[in-house]
Nucleic acid binder design. Sequence first.
DNA 1: TCATTGATTTGCT
DNA 2: GCAAATCAATGAT
Length: 199
Amino acid sequence: MRPGQAALNLATVRARYRRPLPTSFYDRPTSTVAKELLGAWVVAPRVRGFRVARIVETEAYLGDDPASHSFRGRTERNRSMFGPPGTLYVFRIHQVYCANAVTRPGQAVLLRAAESLDGGPESLSGPGRLARGFELSLSDDGASLITGRVRVVEGDSRPPTVTRTPRVGISRATERNLRFSWSGHSAVSSPRPWARGAA
DNA sequence: TCATTGATTTGCT
DNA sequence: GCAAATCAATGAT
């Protein structure tokens, strides 16, 4: 099945929303979770039906990681990073919000890009756009991706190949290949790794 | 208390 | 390609 051609069945989405990815999915090494999240769906109820998007790009932020918000220990801002696996960590950068899935204490996966499956015209390519697409804000920080409004559920397909590259927009630990993207997927945010040297 | 910085996006040059 | 927007957390005085 090609991206964008998912048969979005309301009953299927509703059933999966009731059976989201469990705590045990998140309670694994963060890099593993970051990779496994590719292809999963982010689902949130709408006035009518559901908002559904397929994750195509993530980044892992580890415990012993100078680029992670948790690197200097627990603070007021990052407290939800120390919540149980499957906690939603939302923070603001400049004028936008970014959403993370907490794995193990002090570690999280940044949701960088997704492909809208519900016909929504807005782009979800980029962490700020993704968070905005699901109307996430600071009020959602600390919520659960398992029992909360916004949930992550099993998707309908897996990326044929996954590209690993350095993370975007950070100034420390820039050499680590902790960005995971669905190879060749058009919804992956810029810079697209496979487009290097090409138009 | 003050200055600096940023896990981004957008628009202009 | 590059800088502005815009503000609170963070680190330095």
